[in-house]
């Protein structure tokens, strides 16, 4: 994502990148960024909490006018919960248990929870697949750009 941010900035449009992975964003180094200390998958807030999500976006957008050093990051103050316990479990090996199977042992305690890299469209629902089929027909779609399968 930061490659895209850097390219747009270079093309003459100011950009701001949201982040909930501080070290990854620092390494990629976009022009402006805001850091929200939430678990991955919640870059812009929490489900069904519109007021919180508006506050996050309001504070984020303010960084367009407050950040003045190229490549700098502003930290938002919001917390996910009271004790930050979620942080201990992120990408950590599964806790050793008596009945842990061979696979877990073989993988040094890590569980392989990654989804297979399918090379065909992965619809959320079957109805979406039908809707896509219906709306596309034989025509080339102008809003699904660069499809390579």
């Amino acid at each position: 994502m930061s490659l895209i941010a850097r390219a747009i900035e270079e093309a003459g449009i100011p950009t701001l990148s949201m982040s909930s992975a501080r070290d990854i964003t620092r390494s990629a180094w976009p022009a402006r960024s805001t850091y929200l200390d939430f678990p991955l998958g919640h870059t812009a807030g929490r489900p069904h909490m519109p007021e919180l999500n508006r506050a996050i976006i309001r504070d984020t957008l303010s960084a367009f006018e407050t950040l003045s050093v190229p490549g700098s990051m502003s930290h938002l103050s919001y917390r996910w919960d009271e004790n930050d316990q979620w942080k201990d479990k992120v990408f950590a090996p599964a806790e050793k248990s008596v009945d842990s199977d061979h696979q877990k042992n073989k993988n040094n305690g890590y569980e392989d929870d990654r989804v297979a890299r399918h090379d065909t469209p992965q619809y959320q629902t079957e109805a979406d697949e039908l809707a896509a089929f219906k709306s596309h027909g034989d025509e080339e779609c102008e809003i699904c750009i660069g499809i390579d399968f």
């Binding site: 994502m1 992965q122 809707a131 896509a132 809003i143």
Partner: peptide
């Protein structure tokens, strides 16, 4: 605004999981 996260609108072609470099314009 531009978002990763594999978001598409019903009626659009969904993303695939193997280095998909396509994108969607969502009105």
């Amino acid at each position: 605004f531009i978002a990763t996260g594999g978001i598409y609108a019903s009626g659009q072609t969904a993303f695939h999981f193997k280095d998909d470099t396509s994108y969607r314009a969502i009105p």
